[in-house]
Design a protein around this nucleic acid. Sequence first.
RNA 1: GCCGAGGUGACAGAGCGGCUAAUGUGACGGACUGCAGAUCCGUUUCCUGGGGGUUCGACUCCCUCCCUCGGCACCA
Length: 468
Amino acid sequence: MALKVHNTASGELEEFRPAHGNRVHMYVCGPTVYDFCHIGHARSYVAFDTIRRYLEYKGYAVIYLQNFTDVDDKILKRARETGRDPREVSRFFIDAYFEDMGRLGVRRANFHPRVTDHIPEIIATVRDLVDKKHAYVADGDVFFCVTSMKDVVGRLSHQKLEDMLVGARVEPDEKKCDPIDFALWKRSKPGEPGWESPWGQGRPGWHIECSTMSTLYLGNTLDIHGGGMDLIFPHHESEIMQSEAHTGETFARYWLHNGFINVNKEKMSKSLGNFFTIREVLARYEPEVVRLFLVSTHYRSQIDFADTLLDEARTARARLRNAYDALGQARDSGDGAVGEETAKAIEASRTRFVAGMDDDFNTREAVASLFDLANFSNALLHKGGTSRGDREALLGAFRELGGVLGLLQDRPQDADIVGGLVRLLDEVRQEARARKDYATSDKIRDRLRELGVVVEDGAQGLRWKIQK
RNA sequence: GCCGAGGUGACAGAGCGGCUAAUGUGACGGACUGCAGAUCCGUUUCCUGGGGGUUCGACUCCCUCCCUCGGCACCA
């Protein structure tokens, strides 16, 4: 089955064919590191992490690149406000980024280049654009001349230049030849950090870093370029203009953009005060709950972020988790054979999973296939008479498919020392129950609960889980 | 104004030119149980925004209208 992806450039589903055989060159716009990441970042990076995982699952060798914008007005502002060095600010929030994303199971990219590590290369790109007359110098600033690449405008946004200017908030700048031109290089104001350049002390504009660094690491043509929907215009169209003016080759073959998060049906924004950092959310919900919540909606759709929906995800996640842990804890025949029904159920889930993911990464469908598997597994355990082979096959399927979504990656709670101790205590408890000494049995259960271990009497024996 | 996404059951949210329209949550009944929890079995609800068209047949394709959300030079 062929993978189809929605390409923003064509507005249609296209069969995915990377340019370099089995290798996929993938670039996703990273954050400007002036603050903690919010749930919108989580949405985007979880989406592209999942896309990357699925491509690898399909057998592609993915080279994944994500930048950090570590020089920017907002970082400078933040540094002034807190009396810190801008480099210190960006380093701090880069660390925070890795910590937060790590908790959400977002794997690191192969490369995380930073703008400040690539100033010479950026200057070289800008100089080339000036040489090729796609850019002009104006009093220490360098601007890209949009009319020199006019046909790129609208390639992603599908809008005509005239139409855009009607509702636009473009700030006039008398140094620009045309108000739609954008800065490649900005002259440093007094007191601001900057780098020496042919045009004097300055720093890169926003868009140029992505063009320069992606080309540097991944070559002139990317297979996948991703980012939030808001970046379609102007950021990504500017990238195309710069890159194609510079290299003369197609910049990216497939453009993927994730949808936004709303909060209680309203746009999330700092001014509305409905802004949540990943940290705030993770203080209330386990990472796997948040990840399940995010992958339960297609990456291009808008997601509404509301407590009722997170609570629902928590319940749903518990159902998956219970099924998974139950497999790890069930008593069975010890026979390594896999039953026919089990093999069939796993194959059905995998087929549904792959068909969904092949259809522009329909993670919702993939999640449904995981629940199919959980339902089968629960029913099988309920009936009793499972074999070790059944359990191992089902656990393997959960790990295989769950792994693509970044779920169910730790072992079921079963075989470690804690598990042994819980089983020992439960034996004592069962003896007490057998002689109807409920005071003792409940005491064991209650004390375990105080320690964060919940024990339950299942039809197939003990079930337990660690619950904070 | 322009561009994009979408309108499916109590809620969230998939799919498909004709099959009982997924999956999760909720509600109800039953099983299991000392209690609790988990689990199982069953039930519950829309025939898919309004109108028109194509078709033997459309929720699914086309047109149109209405509505919602988002973007339009800071933004994932």
